[in-house]
């Protein structure tokens, strides 16, 4: 534990392609790196279709048969892509657990909550019989639900309770890393805040590392220690929340903040980022953000900007970083 800090998750140059029905390929994730250290909270932020969820699923090894992956995905030192499904299965849920946005679909509608948790525990050989039943009650209490929830069906629970139950199930095997894909997006404001506070408390109490994927910039900068901004399958900037808010280097990061309204201060009106993200079934010759970038220059259309590192997890991929409006 006290030896050299080996990252819990160390994924490098991950690419994910999906086969399209017409034989072409969609290059959804384009050389993304993800590194999560023990107890670290990493936020991955980007708009729909930027590849953030696909990247998360690649870490879990939960991609469909139409997908192909390249790169290196190491979890606690083990190379999972080399080890195949068996290697993923050894870590999935035991070391890496995930909660999704649609907690609705995560639970079986015709089985009571208790049996679902117990089955998960038995399947992963954490506990069985009465021990599993006790563990289920512990888990439910851990996520702040009354034990009565155990006897309910999915449809008898509110959205917030469902998300808590899926958190309980994710924690069943004492994972080291919790992956959360838009965990609060489908929830109401106050319920979302409750669930987020719960995730925050659990990561602290259980020494979990967190990977939070969301499109909500204020939420992610508030929750996480380190942020990766994704655009068109690539990580365009990463750094601490203060770094990317106060010294954004990539114009996309800056525009994302400028597009976000702030309820607490009378800033200028939010801006629109003109145009649309590039189609990922085509090759992008230069910087993927070039067509929408207000500062683009000739070079941006032809050369792909390589990530520049400034140490301590701070990096960006832009030919003209820091260029402000």
């Amino acid at each position: 534990m006290t030896s050299a800090p080996q990252p819990l998750v160390d994924a490098r140059d991950v690419n994910v392609w999906f086969d399209l029905p017409d034989g072409r390929e969609l290059h959804a994730v384009r050389g993304a790196d993800v590194r999560v250290n023990s107890r670290e909270k990493l936020g991955i932020v980007g708009e729909s279709g930027c590849g953030k969820s696909t990247l998360l699923m690649a870490l879990m090894g939960l991609l469909p048969a139409t997908a192909s992956v390249s790169g290196r995905i190491e979890v606690m030192g083990a190379d999972l892509l080399a080890g195949g499904e068996r290697a993923f299965r050894a870590h999935r849920w035991k070391d890496l657990a995930i909660v999704f946005q649609g907690a609705m679909n995560a639970l079986n509608p015709v089985i009571r909550v208790q049996r679902q948790i117990v089955e998960a525990l038995e399947l992963h050989e954490v506990a069985s019989g009465m021990a599993a039943v006790h563990r289920a009650s512990d888990l439910v209490r851990l996520v702040g639900l009354p034990e009565g929830v155990l006897r309910k069906f999915n449809h008898e629970l509110s959205g917030g309770m469902r998300q808590r139950v899926s958190l309980a199930m994710a924690l069943a095997c004492d994972p080291r890393v919790l992956l959360a894909d838009e965990p609060t997006t489908a929830l109401d404001m106050m319920v979302a805040a409750q669930v987020l506070a719960l995730i925050d408390r659990l990561t602290r109490e259980l020494d979990l590392a967190l990977v939070l994927v969301t499109h909500d910039l204020p939420l992610v900068t508030r929750t996480c220690d380190r942020i990766q901004v994704m655009y068109a399958g690539t990580v365009v900037e990463s750094g601490t929340p203060a770094d990317i808010y106060h010294q954004p280097q990539h114009p996309y990061t800056r525009l994302l903040f400028a597009a976000t309204a702030d309820v607490h201060s009378d800033g200028p009106d939010p801006v629109t980022i003109l145009g649309a993200p590039p189609r990922l079934d085509q090759v992008v010759p230069g910087c993927a953000f070039e067509p929408r970038c207000p500062h683009s220059q000739a070079r941006c259309a032809t050369d792909v900007p390589q990530p520049q590192s400034a140490g301590k997890g701070r990096s960006w991929a832009c030919h003209y970083p820091g260029e402000s409006t």
Partner: peptide, 24 residues
């Protein structure tokens, strides 16, 4: 309470969410 749970854009700005118990 609703206003308090919306995080400000600036990650360093003060933020004291006042969570309400339960649901509507």
């Amino acid at each position: 309470a609703l206003l308090s749970v919306v995080p400000p854009k600036d990650p360093l700005a003060p933020f004291h969410p006042q969570l309400l118990e339960g649901e509507i």
